[in-house]
Design a protein around this nucleic acid. Structure first.
Lengths: 134, 134
DNA sequence: ATTACTGCAAATACTTTGCATACCG
DNA sequence: CGGTATGCAAAGTATTTGCAGTAAT
């Protein structure tokens, strides 16, 4: 049995009631590191939580996103991927195998004056071919 | 009547037969600078090209993307936006009014060794609140 | 008892596919 | 004529919504 204590704490801090499903979804986001789609989360967890519905996965991810625990990733055009919030980093998507890698990237440098803009989030997506496929 | 000569030339260079519809779609991408969705392109052009179908817009944009004339932008989760290929730049999306701005950004600096990766494309998406809405 | 959470089914939104018609060289 | 472009309708896929049942405080 895993230890979910730090997740319980994290959810409570954000004012989210740590139901079993929520904890499991967050745990999967945090551990899998695969930037999963809703479907991938659902497929994985529904094997253990047999009554789980996709609606709940959607609801939960929406809640996490609003409360700043998770982030929507616009990687493919047709589907959303999610990841647990961590430090700034970019993503690399392989066009051949569709794997997604994390990439360390220096902080963005804006060449315009952006002092009037409020910035909440920065996403970097690099597309190409990964070493395995090359 | 607009001068479409440079577009005709561009399409021909890429081996694309410059039908009227294709020229108009490219022209709209190039001029509007609004990073339009398929729907926006369709709504705009179908006022003048009454028989235009969305399928054709989809087909054309797919063709442009494959031939390197246009780029798919993953800005919202649920829909694709397109822009004519220009130099590297980022996009800012306002959470309140949903406008999309272009942003000048310095070249990305990777902190990992990426020599084994082939990089074809880089997208930067910044989210927040724009001056008008702030 | 009240509020919040979960889940099914239906509805919506976006995109793709199959096929028929129209156009161009 | 032969190949390409266009367009309609249907199918496919992802997400959201409405509502009812369930669990938690």
């Amino acid at each position: 049995m895993k230890n979910y204590d730090h997740i319980l704490k994290k959810l409570k801090e954000k004012g989210i009631r740590p139901s079993y499903i929520r904890v499991r979804i967050y745990s999967y986001l945090e551990e899998s590191r695969i930037h999963p789609t809703v479907d991938e989360i659902y497929e994985f967890l529904s094997k253990e939580i047999l009554t789980l519905s996709k609606t709940t996965v959607y609801n939960t991810l929406k809640l996490f996103t609003e409360k700043g625990l998770a982030q929507q990733l616009n990687i493919e055009g047709n589907e959303l991927r999610y990841e647990a919030i961590r430090g700034f980093h970019g993503h690399f998507k392989c066009e051949k195998c569709n794997s997604i890698y994390d990439m360390k990237i220096s902080q963005l440098e804006f060449e315009d004056d952006i002092s009037e803009f409020v910035i909440n989030e920065e996403q970097v997506l690099v597309t190409g071919v990964c070493p395995k496929c090359n």
